[in-house]
Design a protein around this nucleic acid. Structure first.
Lengths: 215, 215
DNA sequence: AGCCCCTCTTGATCCAAGTCAATGTGACAA
DNA sequence: TTGTCACATTGACTTGGATCAAGAGGGGCT
């Protein structure tokens, strides 16, 4: 999801001249759904929860942003979702205006943006398949596999992956309840498909990839 | 979803010079998932089903394309989903190459494309909310409301809307079975929220918008 | 006409996941 | 230390929607 690798050094440094460093602590809000979109962010460290709320309080998490990910690239007038920090987060912040000007000067960049947006759309459609046509166990498995893959891009492949989000967050991402998430994670651990590292349950080993990959 | 209205006459006629008219009958395939993407389509008449298949045959419909909609704008190497005609369909067809050249000549157009893609992403996220956090009845209701709105853009507001897709298609879009879709539509009709016009159940009146809008 | 096939409906039954409730556990504050 | 609070787990039970099964049209074919 990181576009950084896709940018020329010149472009990157041009962008960096426009950037402000932005820091928030865990649980703080980056921006809220339906508010006028003011900025573009590139996450430098930490993780962010992206979600939509229904009027009655039900919540759908539409994604998690990890280091390298961009937020606000749609250049829409209003934010399509709320975003808040799961851990303390640092990000590069650009104003929409600066970013927009930058785009006008580098048509190149716009192509990248479009291909990024298309890729995100494709991921959203994959998530639609997961939400609509997968069982609870398949949902958990594909979530863990996907997260593992994303962490691998950020910090290199590893059997141990961090889960910066709560069980509730995972449930709200997969259309499940906390209890179901907890039960299935325990079951996967009992079956030795995963190991819940006893540091406070937010760290996970996936020693038997093939057990999870049975999708 | 139509970008036509968003294009200048000059741009539109430039596009049209590149276009071939494309016709298929109901149930014919426009393109298939994972095949190299060859063309961009702008639907002129008829409706198209967009879907992904799981290896075991489960299907997730990711959307329906109506007149005015574009397909293949992502410019990705491969199709993210399959598309086939629900009714007989006519479309303007552009080759990827021509379309890509056109984009290079009109940076303007690329901005539109990006904003279109962002809008689609936002719709996909709304669909994630529906799939993950809505009850079966809410799913049906929001589907019908959404379809009504889209037909209104194509052919003007009307209480009567066509359902070119089968109950199975609706189920595969909403993460439900045919039986559940059928039962709920019958129930909504019994409660007089909708009227299933007796022409072969593929035409629908929504006389009591507010009954459905209780979301 | 008669036949096949596809779609839709409806009923009876089942089960995966939700709900409700109790308990555990670590972090942090007073 | 004790209390509070947020998160996680586990068990008992309930239920919405799935599954299974049986018709009912309707359209196109010969």
């Amino acid at each position: 999801m990181s576009v950084c690798a896709a940018l020329d050094p010149d472009e990157l440094s041009a962008l960096n001249r426009l950037a402000h460093t932005f820091c928030v602590n865990a649980k703080q809000t980056l921006f809220e759904q339906d508010e006028p979109a003011g900025n573009v962010y590139n996450i430098t460290s930490g993780s962010v929860r992206l979600y939509k709320l229904l009027p009655d309080g039900r919540r759908q998490v539409v994604g998690f942003a990890l280091p390298g990910d961009f937020l606000g690239l749609s250049m829409a007038e209003k934010n399509a979702f709320s975003a808040d920090a799961l851990t303390s987060v640092t990000a590069c912040q650009f104003s929409r205006q600066d970013f927009s000007d930058m785009i006008d000067k580098t048509p190149h960049l716009l192509r990248r943006l479009h291909s990024l947006a298309s890729h995100e759309l494709s991921l959203a459609q994959d998530q639609m398949v997961i939400l609509g046509r997968r069982t609870a166990e398949e949902k958990i498995a594909s979530f863990l596999m996907g997260l593992r893959k994303r962490w691998a891009k950020v910090s290199g492949a590893s059997v141990t992956i961090p889960l910066p989000m709560t069980r509730q967050d995972i449930g709200d991402f997969l259309g499940l309840t906390v209890e179901t998430v907890s039960r299935l994670m325990t079951r996967l651990a009992r079956e030795k498909a995963i190991v819940i590292v006893p540091d406070g349950v937010r760290l996970l080993d996936i020693p038997r990839l093939e057990r999870l990959a049975e999708t």
